[in-house]
Design a protein around this nucleic acid. Structure first.
Lengths: 205, 205
DNA sequence: AATTTGATAGTTTTGTTAAAAAAGTCAGGA
DNA sequence: TCCTGACTTTTTTAACAAAACTATCAAATT
């Protein structure tokens, strides 16, 4: 039965891969279970044997992506030369993550209201990892005496992360305002975030 | 004919006041032209004699509000003791503005896509005034030698304003994510913004 | 002539329904 | 235990009518 579970796990992985490709290229709502099944030359019913429903399948793919992202963060906890390095690392890693999975996140855009609750667990997981990473860096630098102690590092990091998410393009006219930045705007946003890092980190010294 | 125009202007004012009350209490979409006309004991058709359409009426009210806000900002340009004062003033004034006119802005929320272009002129007007105020303060402080010179003060202020708008509540779970903060959350947001100011201003020194 | 209105034309919103498409289920076969 | 074809249920889409509202205008009033 251990071998059987291996087989199951392998098939689950295959399903996740195929789903990932579909979601990544066409987005959640324009991907059907029949298409995923077709890609794998299996019946749709079999998908439901392995995953309870479409949104859970999506979530499973998402958790895999998140897990990769989390690993990147966790590997670096406590391994920074200084505070700026830590903040830079977080922003750059996040940027790459978004760039590489841009279309995947249409589920958020379209369905922003009633998402399954489990999705927020993953989102919080990521956010907590980011907070841990940066709060830890602040802690370390404080102990080294490089920055002025703050009463609540986590609060500071939360403000920083919020501030990052507020950065957008087109200081002038939002014209057709879409909630999500367009792909082409991501680089401009990234540059502004780097500027924010410089000022923010300096403000913590 | 000068007197006639006076009368017209007075009536226009009355219409703006009545509209303001309706929009403020019930929001744009739940206010009808019939109701505004009813409040003033005039016919709906007369409203259209004075204003081309409902959205232009709304915009006229908005321009009046914006004008008050702009006056507050412009009166203080170049009258700050230090940089922190300037940033504090902008954030506090903005906070009061939102608090006092909270429901009025439902038009933005509901109709975020296709608003008349003129609305963005007003929004940009406000944003430019804010940028001018703060960039001017940075300029002044730079000349006084209190802060390290920055290559582009406007860019810095834009990042700051974006960062401010990014501040939101509930670091943990966005649960039912609404684009606009609830009224009760505005104070919490305000406090976080004050923290951001402290760090940001320090980072400019 | 400038201001005002009732009547009405035109448009948007809301609700209903039917057909199509997709999600999800299940009895039974390998 | 793994898998499928056939089936049911739910969601999406399009079409359409009724209702609500915006907007217009000829005519009345000042």
């Amino acid at each position: 039965m251990s071998a059987a579970n291996d087989q199951q796990d392998i098939k689950r992985e295959k399903i996740l891969e195929a789903s990932h490709q579909r979601f990544l290229h066409y987005g959640y709502s324009k991907t059907t279970m029949n298409e995923i099944a077709g890609d794998l030359s299996m019946s749709k019913a079999l998908l439901y044997y392995y995953f309870p429903d479409k949104s859970e399948l999506y979530m499973a793919v998402m958790r895999k992506l998140a897990s990769d992202y989390l690993k990147q963060l966790e590997n670096k906890v406590g391994h920074f030369d200084d505070l700026r390095d830590a903040f830079l690392f977080q922003v750059n890693t996040h940027h790459d993550f978004i760039i590489n999975n841009y279309n995947f996140f249409d589920y958020f855009r379209l369905n922003e209201q009633n998402l399954p609750d489990t999705i927020w667990e993953t989102v919080n997981h990521i956010r907590n990892a980011e907070i841990t990473l940066l709060a830890n860096a602040i802690q370390t630098e404080t102990e080294k005496g490089n920055i002025t102690p703050v009463s609540n590092p986590v609060e500071v990091v939360e403000v920083f992360l919020d501030a990052l998410h507020g950065i957008k393009v087109g200081g002038a006219v939002p014209q057709k305002k879409l909630n999500f930045p367009q792909r082409e705007q991501l680089d401009e946003i990234h540059n502004k975030r780097l500027l924010l890092i410089d000022i923010f980190v300096k403000g913590l010294r």
